[in-house]
Design a protein around this nucleic acid. Structure first.
Lengths: 331, 331
DNA sequence: GGCTATCCTTAAAGCGCTTTAAGGCAGTCT
DNA sequence: AGACTGCCTTAAAGCGCTTTAAGGATAGCC
C-alpha cells in the first residue's frame, strides 16, 4: 500500500487538506473537535508528512545539516550531544560525512542541495574565505574554531585548555614538556599557540618543542618515535598531544619502547573521549564540554535562522580531567 | 542573491524548463547545440537542483539512507566504502545515526520521511519481524546479518571467519581458546555459534568458553578482568573477541595485569579496523572486506529498486589478517 | 430582523522540478 | 504538392504540502 497523503487524511476526517495541515502542525485555527477528528484519521492511516513536499512548500526546511568526519570519536560525541540539543526545537539533524573521496565542500553541497535550513561544521580545516563562501549558501555555524565574517563560531577556549595542561604539568615538576602537533587547520593552530603561550608564561619557552604528529593514532606514533629516539637526558618528561587519539599513539609507542607511562613520561590528550576514560587507559585529558558546545551551536544556529543580528562567537571553558597518565617526573 | 531556479537557467539559455531539465539529467532529446547552451547558462548561474523538488516530482528519489552508529569505527569504514560504491550509480548517501536518544526505528523513520529510495542498515540489532516492518516502508538492505522475509542481507561469513581464527590458533598449538562475546544481536549470535562450531570441529568443545563482554573497549575490559582472574593453569592461552574494540579492551587489561601479548596470551579481533593496523597494536583480526560488502550492498539495493525479483542474500568471504598479537602458547 | 463581529473552514495559488503528449519544422518520399 | 518521417522543443499537468485571502456559520447587538 502506498503511503497515505494529506488528501487521504482530509477525506477520512471529512475536512480539507488545509485544515489537516494546520492541525498536524499545531497551528491556530481549527477547533478542538476538528483537531481530534484529524488526529484520529491521521493515526488510523499511519500518516507521515513527506519532507520533500513540506520543504518545498514552506521556503525554509527544518533540517539542520551537520558536516562531520564519521571516523572521528569526538564528532560522534558531538553528534550525540547535538541530537539532545535539538530535541524540542523542531529542528532535525541530517548528517553528511567527509570521506576519502568527499571533502567538506562536497559534503556541504549535498546538504545545501537538500535545502537544509542551516549547516553546522564540526572540526573544519577550511579557512576564513572558504567559510564565507559556504556561508553565502546557507547559515553557517562552525564548531571548534572562530567564526568568519559570515559564519558564527562555537568553540572551547583552546588557549585556556593548554594553559590548564601546562599548569598541571609544571605543578607536577615537569619542565621539558613537548607538544605533538595536529597539523594544519585553525583548531590545530590555536592549540599550538596556546601551548607556546603557556610555556612562555612559565618561563619555559626555550624548552618548548613542537613535534609533528597529526590527528590520529598514526600521527601519534610518528611523534612518539621521534621522542623515544632522544637521549633520556634531554628527552621531554611530558608530552601534550593534539587530541586523545594522537595521545594514545604516543603512549603506545612509548610503552613499546620500554618507557613507562606516567613514570618515565606523562601523556596528556585532548577531547576527553570515551577512549580516554577506559579503565586501562585513564588518560589525563581536556574536556571540551560537548553538551555545552552543542547547546551553544544550536542556539547560534536558531539565532541565525531567526535573523537575529549581532550573533557572536561563543567560547566554552574547557576543563582538565586528571587521570593516571600524568605524574611527577622521575627523580 | 537567491539560488537560481530551473526557470532562470531556461530564460538565460533561451529554452524551456523542460529542455533544461532534460539536458541537466542527460536524458535523450535535446540537440548538441541546445545542450551546450544550457550547460553554459547553468554554469554561469551556478545552478544546483533543489533535491526536495526533484524528489517530489519524480516518484522516487535518488537518496539512499544509511542507518549507522556514528561511534562505531567499522561503520565509519563502511560509510567510506559505500561512498565509493555509489559513485557513478546516481545514488546519493544520506546518513542517519542512532544515538543515546534515537533508536534504529527513529533513525529509519527520519530517512523514510525524507522519501529515501531505500534504506541500508549497518550492524542492526533488530529481529526479523522488526526488519519486515521497516521493509514495508522502504526497500531495505541489512549489512552484517541475514536478510528477513522482505529485507535483503549482505554479510561476511562469520562462521567461516571464526573457523579461520580457531584454525590459526590451534595450528599455533592453542587448545584453551576463549571467546569474548558481543552480546545480543544477530551478528553476535552468528559469531558465537561460529566459534562453538569451530571448537567442536577441533575436538575442543569442552574447552570452549564464552565470556561476556560487549562491542566496545569497556566490554573487553570486563571480559579481560574475568580471564586475568583465572589461575595460569586453566586460564585460556588465547582469546577471540567479538570485534577489534573489544579485543583492545581485553589486551589492555591483560597487559595491565602483567601478562604479555602474545607470549602469555594471544588476542584476536574482528573487523580489521584502522586500530588493529596501528604499528604498536598490530592486532591479528578478521577482515570483513568492507569494499566487497559495500559493493554487494549497493548491488542488492539497486536490484531491489529496479524491482528485480529473487534478489538473494550475499555472503562475502572474510579473510584472516595475521599480525603480532598471536603466537604459540608459552612452553 | 438586519448588521456586525467572531470563529472556522476551505478554495486556490503556488514551491521548483519532472514528464508526457502534442506541436513545429526540416527534410523525404510518391 | 501533399503526405510522411524524424527530430527537437515545449506547454501543461502534476508531485504532496503550506499559506492566504475569502467565504460561511454562528452568535451578539441594536
Amino acid at each position: 500500500m502506498p503511503r497515505a497523503r494529506l488528501a487521504d487524511v482530509a477525506r477520512r476526517a471529512g475536512v480539507s487538506t488545509a485544515t489537516v495541515s494546520l492541525v498536524l502542525r499545531d497551528r491556530p485555527g481549527p477547533s478542538q473537535a476538528t483537531r481530534s477528528a484529524v488526529h484520529e484519521a491521521a493515526g488510523a492511516l499511519g500518516y507521515r508528512a513527506d519532507r520533500s513536499a513540506s520543504a518545498l512548500a514552506r521556503k525554509r526546511s527544518h533540517l539542520l545539516g551537520v558536516v562531520l568526519d564519521v571516523s572521528h570519536p569526538f564528532h560522534a560525541t558531538m553528534v550525540d550531544a547535538l541530537d539532545g540539543a535539538v530535541a524540542g526545537t523542531g529542528l532535525d539533524l541530517v548528517l553528511s560525512t567527509t570521506t576519502s573521496r568527499r571533502d567538506e565542500r562536497a559534503a556541504v553541497d549535498t546538504l545545501v542541495d537538500s535545502r537544509c535550513a542551516g549547516v553546522l561544521l564540526l572540526g573544519t580545516t577550511l579557512g576564513d574565505d572558504a567559510l564565507d563562501t559556504l556561508a553565502a549558501d546557507a547559515p553557517l555555524v562552525v564548531v571548534g574554531r572562530p567564526g568568519a565574517r559570515l559564519a558564527r563560531g562555537v568553540r572551547a577556549d583552546d588557549a585556556h585548555g593548554l594553559r590548564l595542561v601546562v599548569d598541571h604539568l609544571t605543578r607536577l615538576g615537569h619542565t621539558r614538556i613537548a607538544y605533538a602537533d595536529g597539523g594544519r587547520g585553525a583548531i590545530s593552530t590555536a592549540r599550538r599557540q596556546g601551548y607556546r603561550a603557556a610555556m612562555r608564561d612559565h618561563g619555559l619557552a626555550p624548552a618548548a618543542a613542537v613535534v609533528r604528529a597529526g590527528d590520529t593514532e598514526a600521527g601519534g606514533l610518528v611523534a612518539g618515535a621521534a621522542l623515544a629516539a632522544e637521549p633520556p637526558g634531554t628527552r621531554p618528561t611530558a608530552v601534550v598531544a593534539f587530541n586523545d587519539r594522537c595521545a594514545l599513539g604516543v603512549r603506545d609507542v612509548m610503552v613499546r619502547a620500554g618507557l613507562a607511562v606516567p613514570t618515565d613520561l606523562s601523556v596528556v590528550g585532548y577531547d576527553d573521549s570515551p577512549l580516554a576514560r577506559l579503565e586501562t587507559v585513564r588518560l589525563t585529558s581536556v574536556s571540551q564540554d560537548p553538551e555545552a558546545l552543542a547547546r551553544a551551536s544550536i542556539a547560534s544556529m536558531t539565532a541565525l535562522l531567526d535573523g537575529t543580528t549581532g550573533v557572536e562567537d561563543v567560547v566554552v571553558e574547557p576543563r582538565l580531567v586528571v587521570r593516571d597518565s600524568t605524574a611527577a617526573p622521575r627523580g
